[in-house]
Amino acid sequence: MDYLVEINNLTFKRGERVIYQDISMRIPKGKTTAIMGPSGIGKTTMLRLIGGQLKPDSGDILFAGNSIPSMNRHQLYKTRRDMSMLFQSGALFTELTVFDNVAYPLREHTKLSESLIRTIVLLKLQAVGLRGAAQLMPSELSGGMARRAALARAIALDPQLIMYDEPFAGQDPISMGVLVKLIKTLNDALNLTSIVVTHDVDEVMSIADYIYIVADKKVIGEGSPEQIRNSDSELVQQFLQGQADGPVPFHFPAESFKQQLLSGGKS
């Protein structure tokens, strides 16, 4: 199989805290890959590592065969035109209309005529169903619409790779359904490679071709949705079922409760 992104033996630390320890992943080309895991284990960090915004402490990240961490600034910026990222908040530019937001990367990176840009922007907005909202300001959009507008902007330059950072977080069931459908159809129609970072199990099971479950600095389970569902790992099952206690403990690590109560005021 052809891989667009390969992560080899990557270690990443934030100060003293180890986020990833010797982790490896492969993102197949033209497929939707999901990275799942509990909150706070640095799933977004992984996307930033792929995007070259962070540098790993060791290990390598290959994008279409080229090593991201060893690129200079110029090469990195060139490579980033082939990838795009959908941020959790949408990250639309608040002082521009939806239309100008989508047109923005086109105006920055291409020398297309204004009428051609208009055509492309309307096409992209049509694809996410927001052609009618072209002249609205981002503050006038609902959360789900903002994310769709950001999606239109993310695909404006027809990238090879699109990374979704928690696309379903905080959405009502209808917008969630719309986003699931969009990710699926865009991936198929544009022959994109998608990476979806999320912890919404059911939604991602329905669209992902391949799933990585990350916890405790490493990959604890991987495979197709079917394989994952049948996994015999306790940790994976706890995550899928949403159990409160299990291998991932309910309690944040602390000294024993009894000891703390007896020790008096010194919290």
């Binding site: 910026y77 990838m83 990250a91 639309l92 530019f93």
Partner: peptide, 14 residues
């Protein structure tokens, strides 16, 4: 805070 700066960076705009 609203990731607009990160988003610019990912759009290959400094």
């Amino acid at each position: 805070a609203t990731e607009q700066l990160s988003s610019l960076e990912m759009m290959a705009i400094d």
